[in-house]
Design a protein around this nucleic acid. Structure first.
Lengths: 239, 239
DNA sequence: CAGACCGTATTGGTCAGACCAAGCTTCGTT
DNA sequence: AACGAAGCTTGGTCTGACCAATACGGTCTG
């Protein structure tokens, strides 16, 4: 991310997340930070505004104080994942778990309300995973396209916003791990067929059970990628 | 919300949400806005930063442009609900639907992993709804306390963050509607007993089915409150 | 010695005016 | 009509200043 206030914000975010400043501690004054990072107070103020809206700090006349991470916005997650050389497996797993449930919610709604055209659009996205011989990259892209399409077909605005935000949070970590991922296309193919069938017949039970299985498979794939990454880079523990 | 930049931000947010500026349209320049609202450019810049992080606008050298609401952050919701005299029923309903699913997720995890103390803490919060004769206000407070406690007992950080944010979004609308709410304590009492039992016996199925029923009841209560509010204030259609 | 009180230094909030580089407009050229 | 260059507008950053709210240290009091 370019721009001076973005750089400053990134530094401060990482400092807070790594515990450099601890809970309820006062950050240095805007003037001090400006001097330290050779920036104007205005730029520092913009950075502070960013931290404030991510929910990491609370800024009042008198000083800015570090908040509990449980009071933060969803946007912290990408920064949490950006720590260390390898992203946090547990956190990514949690995100995928939530996304899976949200997909099931969206599916429940879409299979009842969506038009045939909408469902056909999703089926079109599923097809490549059944018929084509995709590269790993293409396959990953295809899987995410399907998930996003299902979410997007929902009329539930909060659901769409949450899901989109979550996808954005994993994006950087995903590309980081990409080279370690090994995909079992055949197992995915079987599930893709079921998914297609459930879309065609508007079979909710089949769709949800299929997506739970896909979710399991995704999880396996990810865990193996993490193991590979750890083995490659070195066994660092990320608390 | 006090503070000049907050006021400016609120005005601009409402202007965008009500369609005063439409998609991809350029907002007036920071200098123009500063003149219009009798503020310095710095204050306007801070307001713009807010809008940018809510995801309503995209600001680049050349101008700030309105983005699609589907690209916004979860925080738009409170502003969406703040439009008009009566909040949007559909939207609140969608939020409650999502929260319900998230609670079921959290429950699934907690009943397996949480300590007896944690579960007992939640049961303590449920008790008043069974035994005590609560006022409407107290009852509402109690219901939300239980929901928040279940969520908080989850080890899933994204889930906690999402839920907390959602609760924050409804908060203002909740207090607005408060005077129109009529609560059927007896029906809640029955469900509260089942909830307590499910917590005591770590019975996931019972807990989830109970919470689905509670969710239904919440929904009924809310819909009636809306009807009352509409009848009271007048039949305005909010698109 | 502990705790309440008060004044001063510090901090964020706002303002004004200035410069630069990246977009946007407009107009002239081909 | 299509294209390109000049000029203008816009956001990004900087400097330096003033105000009001807060924090902090010292003082006074019990």
């Amino acid at each position: 991310m370019s721009g001076k206030h973005n750089q400053i914000a990134d530094i401060l975010i990482q400092d807070i997340l790594t515990g450099h400043y601890h809970l309820a501690e006062r950050l240095p004054s805007e003037r001090d930070l400006a001097a330290r990072y050779e920036a104007s107070r205005g730029s520092v103020r913009e950075a502070m505004k960013t931290l404030e809206q991510i929910g990491l700090i609370d800024v009042q006349p008198g000083g800015a104080r570090v908040k509990d991470i449980d009071e933060a916005s969803l946007d912290v997650i990408s920064h949490l994942l950006a720590q260390g050389q390898v992203p946090d497996v547990v956190l990514i797993d949690q995100i995928m778990t939530v996304i899976n449930k949200l997909i099931c919610m969206a599916a429940e709604e879409s299979l009842q309300l969506a038009s045939n055209e909408e469902l056909d659009d999703i089926r079109t996205l599923v097809q490549p995973m059944i018929e084509d011989n995709l590269s790993q990259e293409q396959h990953t892209l295809a899987r995410f396209s399907v998930m996003k399409a299902i979410i997007k077909s929902s009329r539930n605005l909060p659901l769409r916003l949450i899901s989109r935000t979550l996808f954005e949070q994993i994006e950087p970590a995903k590309t980081n791990l990409h080279r370690y991922v090994v995909i079992d296309m055949d197992r995915y193919r079987v599930l893709a067929r079921k998914l297609d069938k459930s879309l065609k017949q508007r079979d909710l039970d089949l769709m949800q059970s299929t997506y739970n299985k896909i979710s399991e498979l995704n999880r396996d794939t990810m865990l193996r990628a993490f193991k590979a990454a750890r083995a490659d880079i070195g066994p660092e523990a990320i608390s």
